[in-house]
């Protein structure tokens, strides 16, 4: 049974010359962990927001468990740059993840006066930031903030966990830690991570989806991803998208990628 299904999905933004996501079909099974790699402006974030329902496709269908209009609690997304509430405490931010399972009335109080923050605290401990539970988010470092964003998504206990560049601008140790945190939640749950660092993707994930110019360029296990695949991924984006953003992404590191033979 497919958990997440993209069926011929196209999505354009107002005023854009080409669709951000063009006719994409992709399925993810329960328990799979997938890395989506590709240049900036490739449409990766759009893909994730389509999966959460924050964006609706212009055409095609996005399904969760076959349901084209799923409950919002089914997916949890770690936003790029966190999308945290700066003036609230870490715990308050994390407890927001439980709102989907609260009653309407209780949910109005919960983030301010959590009734049973045990699970949230546990996850904060596992992320190594439990000591900051009462600290305001705007006083944390970017690595700590990313971990808060991850814990908020994890506490949601949804079946599909998505993360948008959770390791952007972080040092290797912190990146490692964040990916470990996210994948530790896997059982029958699925994880999809948009990630810039190809080495990190190849090391951590069992399935790599190359995405550029709004379409899937390749979709294979890391052992079969070649240097040429990666080269083409960034080259194609430079020619098809033609945006400066995409060209700038071109000279990315490729060491560690298997040679093409």
């Amino acid at each position: 049974m497919t958990l997440l299904g993209f069926h011929d999905v196209t999505k354009s933004y107002d005023g854009a010359t080409r669709p951000a996501v063009a006719d994409v079909s992709l399925t993810v099974d329960p328990g799979e962990d997938v890395a989506i790699v590709g240049p900036s402006g490739a449409g990766k974030t759009t893909l994730l927001r389509l999966a959460t329902g924050a964006l609706r496709p212009d055409s095609g269908r996005v399904t969760i468990d076959g349901d084209p209009d799923p409950d919002r609690t089914q997916t949890a997304l770690v936003y790029q740059e966190g999308a945290l509430l700066e003036r609230r405490s870490v715990l308050s931010n994390v407890v927001v993840g439980t709102l989907g399972s609260q009653s309407r009335l209780r949910g109005l109080l919960e983030p301010l006066y959590p009734r049973d923050p045990e699970r949230a605290i546990q996850l904060l401990e596992r992320a190594g930031i439990a000591e900051y539970a009462d600290t305001r988010v705007d006083q944390l470092s970017s690595g700590e903030r990313q971990r808060v964003a991850c814990v908020r998504a994890l506490v949601q206990e949804s079946r599909l966990l998505l993360a948008d560049e959770p390791t952007a601008n972080l040092d290797p140790t912190t990146s490692q830690r964040i990916l470990d945190l996210l994948s530790a939640a896997l059982d029958d749950r699925s994880l999809i991570v948009v990630i810039h660092d190809i080495d990190l993707a190849l090391e951590h994930f069992e399935r790599i989806v190359g995405f550029s110019g709004g379409t899937v360029r390749f979709d294979k296990p890391p052992s079969r991803v070649s240097a040429a695949d990666v080269d083409r991924l960034f080259d194609e984006s430079a020619t098809t998208a033609g945006s400066t953003r995409a060209t700038r992404a071109q000279p990315r590191s490729k060491p560690g990628v298997q040679s093409d033979q």
Binding site: A54, D71, Y79, A83, V96, L99, R152
Partner: peptide
């Protein structure tokens, strides 16, 4: 968006 996406 992040808060609403949790099912709030």
């Amino acid at each position: 968006e992040a808060v609403y996406a949790t099912g709030a």
